[in-house]
Design a protein around this nucleic acid. Structure first.
Lengths: 211, 211
DNA sequence: CGACATTTTGAATTCCATCAAGAAACGTGG
DNA sequence: CCACGTTTCTTGATGGAATTCAAAATGTCG
């Protein structure tokens, strides 16, 4: 991307602060631009027929939300809700489509990014359909540790509610809670209030592999 | 896409015939190009930890396979296996990447296509995690009817094995068979050998909605 | 026909969602 | 700071859904 173009995109950014629990957008809305996360984490979820949310992915610093809808010129299929306080910047869709048309490299860059998202989505499909709830819970904890890290005491940096966990894993909140307490009893994880920490990574991995 | 470029792509195509059951490629392989389906149908599947295949999507006439891997310059995450006899054409990756670099419109076109795939993948994730096996079976039949049509007697044009059905839906083959016979008894579908036909679209829809 | 894969049914078991109800945490206004 | 209503978390009990293992029936192909 050339310097002038980088400047255009950069100038057209609008910064926003979003409070935990507030929505950046909701499924079905038309977006006039994309959001880029500068700080904090957002969940991207979709309402299912039975009234439950399914969290499809999480977006944190440096990640972009809404590009699928803007590119396809459709309304969003997902809602974006802040899981923690956030700072985001907004880039109007005209800027996106102009840059796309003018700059093949930018397009290819976006393409790569979407190819990556698609691969992850394929993996999630397989996990959802072939793994047990326990295995998916174990994966979720390892994923959160890997992507968001842990504090000095070994607890996951990103703190989610039990309901959010269940919406990531696609299960009932009670099942999720039961599995957390089972994992704790077996020493796979540790808890402190809402915080959860990975205690035995190896055993979690074994569980995922089916031992 | 300009005429010259169209010609380049067209000239570089290589036609292949693939027999039912044969693989176009297998997960983990590196691809040196993409496949475009001219005739027949292929399943795109991924092996899960427990040894079962999960069919992520089906590709038929006009659809392209392998573009994700080629664009991301990774090995494929999916296997492509012919569900019926097929004719496909192969386009080398150099041709793809050259065209991508030169032609912003082509890139945007591919981008739109991938945005569409991503949306569908999101929907599948929600279906897999929130719907029952029965509901997913019902959806599968309606999907197959809508996308591949039915013969003069009302049976689905695309004939899959029971195992393939179960791999689409993400369930055990026995469960899948039991549901088929239940649906038949209730008059939702009809069968004749391996062939399956939609008998009562409305009732299938009701079942999906949870009645 | 015989060998092999696919389809079908049966029964036992495990997994998970749901309903109900109690305990702990949280915020808010007095 | 406490009393309160509200939300979130936790545990128990139960029924239904789906997997698994086993075995029989049917189909397919050399």
């Amino acid at each position: 991307m050339s310097k002038e173009e980088l400047k255009i995109v950069s100038d057209s950014k609008i910064s926003k602060k979003i409070k935990k629990g507030d929505a950046l957008f909701r499924e079905g809305e038309k977006l006039d631009g994309v959001f880029c996360v500068r700080d904090g984490v957002s969940k991207l979820s979709k309402l299912s027929g039975n009234g439950k949310d399914q969290i499809v992915r999480l977006a944190s610093k440096g990640e972009v939300m809404g590009q699928r809808a803007v590119i396809a010129e459709e309304s969003t299929n997902l809602s974006a809700i802040a899981v923690s306080d956030m700072k985001v910047c907004f880039i109007p869709k005209e800027v996106i489509s102009n840059t796309l048309d003018r700059n093949p490299n930018f397009a290819v860059e976006v393409l790569r990014h979407m190819a990556h998202d698609l691969r992850e989505a394929d993996d999630v499909i397989v996990n959802m359909s072939q793994k047990t709830v326990k295995q998916r819970m174990a994966e979720a904890f390892l994923y959160l540790k890997k992507n968001y890290g842990e504090d000095t005491e070994g607890y996951l940096t990103l703190v989610l509610s039990r309901e959010d966990y269940s919406n990531v894993v696609g299960t009932a909140t009670e099942s999720c809670i039961r599995i957390i307490s089972e994992f704790k009893k077996k020493g796979l994880i540790k808890t402190s209030g809402k915080k959860i920490g990975v205690a035995d990574e190896r055993k979690l991995l074994d569980l995922i592999e089916g031992f």
